[in-house]
Design a protein around this nucleic acid. Structure first.
Lengths: 242, 242
DNA sequence: CGCTTTGGTGAACACCGTTAACAGTTAACG
DNA sequence: CGTTAACTGTTAACGGTGTTCACCAAAGCG
């Protein structure tokens, strides 16, 4: 088994190229026709292949979609990281606002992709090897962008967090288990970090899924106000709108 | 064309009964096998009919699902109304907590149904006759349960709402358009009502869709803390946990 | 009674995900 | 080098889906 300088044979490289071709075609169909257009046969048709040929690269239709999801997570993560590191003069608070707004912008620009990532229920989150799934790991890398930023904000200038007595022992117990993951933040601070994420998620989901149209035709101003409100809870100074 | 005492012919009554049967079968399949089990042929098989027979009652598979969604909204609304009116001694704040918790309980007990109602993007919310859709009207009746409660809380004891200057003119303009729907509440109060709903929605969606498992294995305590926090913003006195 | 409407059927179409059997190309190995 | 195995693609087929069509029996109604 002779290996080239890159450690891969020629076939391996061609195979990898085909894999990215397949995922690109799937991505194109997803953008153009929504999640329902992501058929296995449609993907094959897109690149002039027969449907069974795709089974040489993905074990099933679900596996293909899962791979696309992982790629989308990584792409979204890269977008947010670029936003976070784009302005070297921005302080942590500004970075947090940039990233939150960037997530909303991405979701609005790619509603089908966003729905694929966050809209559908996670299949079986308590299966055995679920943590090893590529899409799950990509999701964790994505979430870490927010987690890291909030943790940095905390370690730079601890924000006033609710006391353990206000949260109740049961909740404090669960939050404390995540203290290590949150770089040693106490329960109250982890609570606020979770609060940041759940509210951000809820806002964007409602807007992208059209669940807010009855109340607001343009949710942008409401989103800004909410993000500022959440930021204040993290001790960030938020400019008043206008 | 002779009409019976009820204003319907015998055929009409039998037809209506069949419609109910169809939706009941669809509901059963939904509960047992999730949203993907809601096949048109599967429903027909469930009641010993041929697939084309269903087209005498629903114009398409999508129409059938839409009818099921409307029924689910009504069922959920009835559950919440029963909770709201169940305890005659409960004040408005307690009713609000009961209804919020009832929504979470229903979502956890019927995850497939909840996903059908709130998980998938609303198809085309800006189509012409979309507001006349039965499922949309049922969704509005559902939302009105929360809207009415918050409005009653406001009119009984106005809670401290953010001033217009804090929200910005653009947002205030949009909120004021909904003032009439919210029984004359000012922009700041409508903002808090929206805040209540978006946070409640986000919390339950994340929990039911398994998007919170990485942080909390049992989101109950976190939900309670959040609901109390939101209730405080509405001037309700919330008992500390434990 | 005759006629129309209604509710059902089976056949068929086009699509889907998936598997099996097969053929051509390419890499690996004695 | 030749042989052999692995890889990559094909077509055919199975069972499934939503949907349409032509047809038929029964119910309702003048």
């Amino acid at each position: 088994m002779e290996l080239s300088a890159t450690g891969t044979t020629r076939r391996d490289r061609q195979r990898a190229a085909t894999v990215v071709e397949i995922k690109a075609a799937a991505r194109k169909l997803l953008v153009e026709g929504g999640a329902s257009a992501l058929g296995l046969r449609a993907v094959a048709r897109e690149l002039g292949l027969s449907a069974p040929a795709l089974y040489r690269y993905f074990a099933s239709h679900e596996d293909l979609i899962s791979a696309v999801i992982a790629d989308l997570y990584d792409e979204l993560t890269a977008t947010l990281v670029a936003l976070r590191d784009g302005d070297p003069d921005a302080d942590l608070g500004e970075k947090l606002f940039l990233v939150a707004g960037g997530l909303r912008d991405w979701a609005r620009a790619h509603p089908a992709e966003f729905g694929l990532l966050f809209g559908a229920p996670v299949p079986n989150p308590l299966a055995e090897g679920h943590d090893l799934t590529p899409s799950h790991q990509a999701a964790m890398r994505f979430g870490a962008v927010f987690k890291d930023l909030v943790a940095q904000v905390w370690h730079q200038q601890p924000f006033p967090a609710p006391a353990d007595e206000q949260l109740g022992p049961e909740l404090v117990e669960q939050l404390r288990q995540k203290s290590e993951y949150f770089d040693g933040m106490p329960a109250g601070a982890v609570y606020l970090a979770l609060n940041y994420w759940t509210r951000l998620y809820g806002l964007i989901c409602m807007e992208v899924f059209g669940q807010l149209h009855w109340a607001l035709e343009d949710a942008g101003a409401y989103f800004q106000a909410q993000i500022f409100e959440i930021g204040e809870a993290l001790g960030l100074d938020c400019p008043l709108p206008e």
